[in-house]
């Protein structure tokens, strides 16, 4: 059964790699659809737990895929899922990056670059807003999100302090019986 599972991991995430535009967080609903709905590897609750861990732990959010592979087929599953999800897109990025640099003298590329930067910034803020709306359930949570955002904008200290404070606030609110 194990080779079959590994093959399914490779096919599922290899197929996602080149269509996952917008990064790992944008692909999460699709990953959930495949892993829970189509392949029945886990239920929604187990998937939500893995997602929370991948958000709370350090590293790129795409490691959610590694965690799924590990849960489904151990170390081999972790390696297969990670490589399948990242290798095709990395090769494409490598080729595209070189092509981009080759044409960088062109005024069109200069203009495109000056436009892509602001678009990326807009998308980053938007993904934070979307994340906040999926994990925030009330005014207190929204306030906590805003406080961390303000800390990042106005303080030169490492944002780790703000996340640590958010964890402590989560524990404290939980003990007071105020859920986030």
């Amino acid at each position: 059964m194990k080779p079959g599972v590994l093959l399914a991991l490779a096919k599922t995430f290899g197929g996602l790699s080149l269509v996952a535009v917008g990064g790992a967080n944008a692909a999460v609903p699709e990953i959930q659809r495949q892993v829970v709905g189509r392949l029945h590897w886990m239920d929604d609750g187990a998937f939500a737990h893995l997602f929370a861990i991948s958000q709370a732990a350090p590293g790129p959010n795409v490691l959610l895929v590694s965690l799924i592979g590990w849960r489904v087929a151990g170390l081999a599953g972790l390696l297969v899922a990670t490589v399948a999800m990242n290798l095709p897109s990395s090769l494409l990025a490598f080729a595209a990056g070189r092509a981009w640099r080759r044409w960088s003298a062109s005024p069109w590329i200069g203009r495109l670059q000056r436009v892509l930067g602001p678009i990326a910034v807009g998308l980053i803020v938007a993904s934070g807003v979307v994340m906040a709306r999926t994990s925030d359930h009330g005014l207190i949570a929204a306030g906590l999100t805003a406080a961390v955002a303000a800390f990042v904008v106005f303080s030169r200290r490492s944002p780790m302090w703000a996340l640590g404070a958010a964890a402590v606030a989560g524990v404290a609110l939980n003990r007071l019986g105020v859920g986030l």
């Binding site: 709370a56 994340m131 906040a132 925030d136 999100t145 703000a162 958010a166 939980n174």
Partner: peptide, 12 residues
Amino acid sequence: SGVAVGAAGLVI
């Protein structure tokens, strides 16, 4: 859940 809520603020 505190970290999850804070992470959204970090991104924003």
